[in-house]
Design a protein around this nucleic acid. Sequence first.
DNA 1: TCATTAAATTGTT
DNA 2: AACAATTTAATGA
Length: 235
Amino acid sequence: MSTEASLLQRRRPLTAAELGVIPWLTVLQPDERERAVADLKITDAKPGDFVCRTGRPVTYWFGLVDGLLKMSADNIDGQTMTFTGVPPGGWFGEGTALKREVYRYNIQALRKSLVAGLHVDTFHWLLDHSIGFNRFVMRQLNERLGQFIAAREIDRMGNPNIRVARSLAALFNPVLYPGLGAVLRITQQEMAYLVGLSRQRVNEALTKLASEGAIAVEYGGLRVLNLQALRTGMF
DNA sequence: TCATTAAATTGTT
DNA sequence: AACAATTTAATGA
């Protein structure tokens, strides 16, 4: 199995196209940006690979360039609870990186993904030097908090249609995942892993949501037509 | 570039 | 969980 240890080994600098997917680079001053880019590394994650696991010390602040990740935590009773999915453009672990603690959740690749990493030392340097970066991280923390609370509610909800809808709405969160367009590349199988339902039930829910005009189902993904409807469940 | 084949994904049962 | 139908990706002429 590949862990974060091996992730640190086979890594390389980022291409220009990959840098373009990183939302916070645009809020930096030229000198800050230069330092960040110099430190950024990228690596592959195969489906099932853990990018980070609970209890491991934080060495990098991670972000997704391409692919799809799942953020989850293990309950006391051994049950795994999925917080949310992470689409390209999403960055995570800032809370633990701030305090230099250990990870409180697992991040696992749902499909072949490109993961970028910024060393915690550089992360802290940016916090000390860049106002824009501070704003970005602050907003990120705030949104993430709201998302965790929402995840608890989603988990308790019985109606699978609503569950799928709100999970999709969370994936489209414009603050946490700014680079995302209206099209989300996610298979129904991946969606099933994310919300903890069977694939056929997800299929049923997506068909329902599509008939209500909230989304359009496409091959290998879907298009969000009415984000508000997904959030509120009013279709 | 096009046609054929393999693989992935979806929609149903 | 299994199936057929459909879409995309890969291959090679």
